[in-house]
Design a protein around this nucleic acid. Structure first.
Length: 263
DNA sequence: AGCCCTGTTGCCGA
DNA sequence: ATCGGCAACAGGGC
């Protein structure tokens, strides 16, 4: 699930846990901890979260001792805030305030939980580029100048632009009618400007709909994607032009696109 | 029941 | 620089 729009929704969810005393820290799965258990406890136990921020697919929770809890969700992670109904696959669970629980979930135990006191340094260590919603047109165009590979690989490269993954890359290219294998250098200036606008537009639209597939606009490819992966014949028609949706591999990732209107 | 395939993440080595 | 393989697990198809 977690690309930029999903993580942005997690961030909003996580805000519910702000300014409440962290009463207990329950570490249920050590595998995705990038820091020691004792360091994590030291910074969380008895403290409070005072703010949230996001960069690309990373969520940061500011702690009142000046440190940041850094969360990355891998393929199947999410944030849960609940009173009684305990979700499955909890990795880190904290009791915050009066009887509420704030938890990091990870089904496949991929992802990352870390502590840092320097956001800039952290982002640099991870080799992350500008956030997809923060980058401006000039910076975006400059990045495209140096890119040799396919447009799909470019959009997904976190060291160039942070936040866009497989699903939303396909969506952006689908909306623009650009083939995922098209080379960045073969796109005209005007097309690159459109790409920039559409990138922002698709991400914002997804956030507006709480990153829930079923709620996305009618002409979005994302609504069909889950069905497409399981070869359901019903789902293989393009919602824009009726063309056939195809699946190929681009840059080592599965790409879905309309063979009729994406050239 | 149980095998096979697919998958939203990123890292690593050839 | 690009590519496959891997990590770990769920869920659908057959």
């Amino acid at each position: 699930m977690p690309e930029l729009p999903d993580v942005e929704i997690f961030r909003k969810r996580a805000r519910k846990a702000l300014n409440k005393k962290i009463k207990t820290v329950n570490i249920k799965q050590k595998k995705i901890l990038k820091t020691s258990e004792s360091t994590l406890r030291k910074h969380l136990n008895g403290n409070k979260f005072t703010g949230t921020s996001r960069h690309g697919k990373y969520l940061f929770m500011k702690i009142n001792d000046g440190y940041l809890l850094a969360l990355h969700f891998g393929m199947t992670g999410e944030i849960s805030y609940y009173k009684k109904e305990k979700p499955k696959h909890i990795v880190l669970e904290m009791e915050v305030g009066d009887k509420y629980n704030f938890a990091v979930i990870s089904i496949r135990k991929l992802g990352e939980i870390d502590i840092t006191d320097n956001l800039k340094k952290f982002l640099k260590n991870k080799n992350l580029g500008k956030d997809a919603l923060s980058i401006n047109k000039k910076q975006f165009l400059k990045l495209t100048e140096k890119s040799k590979g396919s447009i799909k690989t470019f959009l997904m490269d976190q060291s160039k632009i942070a936040g866009i993954g497989n699903i939303y890359t396909d969506e952006i290219l689908f909306q623009l009618g650009i083939h995922p294998k098209k080379k960045v250098e073969d796109l005209e200036e005007k097309e690159l400007e459109k790409l920039f606008e559409k990138m922002k537009n698709v991400l914002k639209e997804a956030i507006k709909h709480s990153a829930i597939r079923e709620k996305m606009p009618r002409n979005y490819l994302i609504k069909k994607r889950a069905d497409l992966a399981h070869n359901k014949e019903k789902a293989d028609k393009c919602p824009k032009c009726g063309g056939k949706i195809k699946n190929i591999t681009v840059g080592g990732r599965s790409a879905y696109f309309c063979s009729k209107h994406q050239k």
